[in-house]
């Protein structure tokens, strides 16, 4: 009996997973298939781009600069064992553009934007504001969801581009101030070493992460139920699911793009 119960539990969990995946796919389909019909909400897209990009700059910039600084510190310790400390600029630039920039920015934006989107849309759901949108002949998928998804896709790469520069600058500061690197030498090494693919692939990853963050925020908020408690649960779920999906997607995208 115990084995049967365990099997039933496994089956139920699998069915729930399939149901959730199907519902998420339908949600994405609704958002994109309806987006091509007018009216187009350009103002909403612009507003979301400002929220995601401009207002996330301080937190992402701060994260990036300290990531770059600690990377230079740690690299120095590791590389000293092989007397290869001169490689710090390459290590910093490579790690920031390919990995740390997109992932840290994605996680930071998941905490800031994913949570706020889930809370905002969740509150609109439980206070009948989404129903009000429908009665005002406005499709919530076009008005609320699609502008956020589009803004996430476009804005996170821009944010990561800035984070890349700030992160490398963090490594530069530590290398020059603490390890006595020649500033021009540091910049030249970064410039010579980095290839376009390092930056471009990092930006493609960040675009996917931006989509994941906004999708989880919108999806969890849209289907929130049960008043304030439900909105709180949706907010937590949005951040947790986006963070996990970012790390999972990071692995597969890295394997795909960098030919591992």
């Amino acid at each position: 009996m115990a084995a049967l119960d365990a099997l039933a539990l496994l089956g139920r969990t699998f069915l729930k997973f399939l149901e959730a995946t199907g519902r998420l796919a339908v949600f994405v389909w609704n958002a994109f298939s309806r987006a091509w019909r007018p009216p187009f909400y350009f103002r909403a897209v612009g507003q979301q781009m400002i929220d995601i990009g401009y207002y996330s700059l301080p937190i992402v910039g701060l994260t990036a600069i300290f990531a770059g600084m600690v990377l230079a510190l740690q690299s120095n310790i590791g590389l000293a064992r092989f007397e290869a400390e001169t490689q710090i600029p390459e290590i910093v630039a490579f790690s920031i553009t390919r990995e740390l920039g997109p992932v840290l920015a994605g996680l930071m934006v998941a905490g800031r934007i994913g949570a706020s989107m889930a809370a905002e849309i969740g509150t609109m759901r439980v206070t009948e504001q989404i129903d009000a949108l429908v009665t005002l002949a406005t499709d919530p998928f076009r008005y609320l969801v699609f502008p956020r998804l589009l803004a996430g896709l476009i804005t996170l790469p821009l944010l990561v581009l800035v984070a890349d520069v700030i992160g490398i600058f963090g490594g530069f500061v530590v290398s020059v101030q603490t390890f006595g690197f020649n500033p021009a030498n540091f910049i030249n090494k970064v410039w010579d070493y980095l290839v376009w693919d390092d930056i471009f692939d990092g930006l493609v990853k960040s675009s996917v992460f931006g989509f994941i963050v906004t999708l989880m925020g919108c999806y969890q908020g849209y289907y929130s139920r049960g008043g304030a408690e439900g909105v709180g649960r949706a907010t937590t779920n949005a951040v947790v699911s986006a963070s996990i999906l970012i790390l999972v997607a990071d692995y597969f995208l890295s394997a795909l793009m960098f030919g591992v």
């Binding site: 509150t123 609109m124 009948e128 504001q129 129903d131 009000a132």
Partner: peptide, 9 residues
């Protein structure tokens, strides 16, 4: 709507 359902933003 019963609660007004005004858009907060």
């Amino acid at each position: 709507f019963q609660s007004g359902a005004l858009f907060d933003s």
